[in-house]
Amino acid sequence: MATTSCDVAIVGAGLGGCFLALLLSRRGQRVVVIEQGPSVPSAGADFLKPPGLRVLARHGLADLAGRHGLRRDVIRYYHDGDPIQDCRFPDGFLIRPYRELVELIYTCCAMEGVDFWFDASIDDIAMDDGRVEELALSNGRRLRAGVVIGADGTKSAVRQTLDIEPCTVPYERVVMRVATVPLTASIAQLNRLYFSSDGWFTYFYPLSRDQARVFVGLPPEDDKEIFQDGIPALVDALKKFVTDSSDAFDSLQSATWQRIKVSSLRLGAYHKGNAALLGSAAFACHPMTGMGMSYTLHDAEILADVICAAGGDKELLDRLLSAHYEPRKHAHGQLIDYGDALIATFRDRDAYLAAFRPDLHVYGEAAMPATELPALQPI
């Protein structure tokens, strides 16, 4: 089978990969997105906080993304059943199922001529002198690209090829489960996040006009006991600290619960030569921050500027990635540290409130610009 050539190959068709593909194609780059699944991924967060909405707004997508989503402006926090604070978002935040948001960006990509290769996993990545030369896929196709982006998740094949070791720390003290349930009046009224001094938390929020999402975090020893005994045991446990969302208890009886693994992930480097990492291939923070997707959108924006500024010059690309993309480790590290602090303190009301940072929780990184990034200059 003949080898295909393109300007940029993106491995992974999640939100970060699709958004980067859209930005690059709009600026004349020939882009191929490789996805091992039959369609865009469905697993991901449902929230876009103000930093992510600002990124979409800079590229004319905020209204489109919000058209069928839900806007909220406050989250109420409880400890052992008592409300302890409201976190307010002056500009609001968006709730929209992850798959819907990715499909929206994917549709925009298709209109811009981005080529998507589905059901295509990586068999081999050929390197030469520290740069990616060619991708060999499981379906026999081969691809040569001037730039390769690994947006292929926590087990990134691109990252493994670049020999960049991840530092992964599982949040083993809390097991997380998630279910989709019918929307109730209390959930439609307000997003509510409950903590208990026994090491439990649960989050109720609307997902659409008729559905809601429920997250439950609990100690590993309780998880085994509760989910073996069945949903009545879960509801009994929640009744001990969930107060203003009791109308949701009946809907939990028939819920299907999915266990999800949550870990932090840090890297010492985000690129090597002509290849870079994006999204959960580069970093992962605890979902309590609610900021992972928003930071990834901004990362994609920076990568698009860098790739276009390099103009196909591989040496210049390496230098620009070092100067403008590698510093993202600082912002990501701050967010990961914040997530670690939240998960470590939620049992204790005063400790949690002391760890809570409205600036990071609402606005994200203080340095995130409100206007279009200036054009990068060669260095």
Rank of each mutant, 00 (worst) to 15 (best):
L278F: 11
T107W: 01
A2Q: 10
P232E: 03
L207H: 08
E315H: 08
I231H: 07
I84D: 04
D350L: 03
D123L: 01
F201C: 13
D198A: 14
P170N: 13
S5V: 06
V147F: 00
V158D: 03
V178E: 04
R71G: 11
A57Y: 04
R54N: 15
L183S: 12
H332R: 11
T107P: 03
L143P: 13
A126F: 09
S208N: 10
P38V: 07
R141N: 10
L278Q: 11
S186N: 04
I307L: 12
L61I: 08
V158Y: 04
V174G: 03
V235F: 02
V55D: 12
S294M: 14
Q258M: 13
A276Y: 02
I75N: 12
W257L: 11
D350C: 01
E365H: 13
R131A: 14
P50N: 09
E100G: 07
K49S: 14
E221G: 03
R131D: 05
G17I: 07
G66S: 15
D198V: 01
A370H: 12
G364L: 03
Y171I: 14
L53Y: 04
E365Y: 13
L376A: 06
T256I: 06
M127E: 15
L48F: 14
I95D: 08
D350N: 04
L53I: 13
S264C: 02
V32F: 00
R72C: 05
G113I: 00
A57R: 15
A304S: 02
Y106I: 00
L190P: 01
A331D: 12
D124E: 11
D115V: 04
D313C: 06
R357W: 07
Q36D: 06
G69K: 12
Q29C: 03
Y171E: 06
C108W: 00
V31F: 01
Y194W: 02
A145R: 12
L317R: 15
C109A: 07
G17D: 03
L23Q: 02
I231C: 12
M1I: 02
F356C: 11
T256F: 01
F346P: 01
A344V: 00
D236V: 05
G268T: 13
K239A: 14
G130I: 05
G290Y: 09
T4K: 12
V31Q: 00
T289M: 10
S208G: 09
L53D: 05
E365T: 04
Q377M: 10
G113W: 00
R67A: 15
G290A: 13
D247Q: 04
P206A: 06
D91E: 15
G311S: 07
C109L: 05
S280D: 15
F195N: 04
I260N: 09
A185I: 03
N191E: 02
K224E: 10
P83S: 11
A237Q: 15
P50Y: 07
A151V: 04
E225D: 12
T345E: 01
E372L: 15
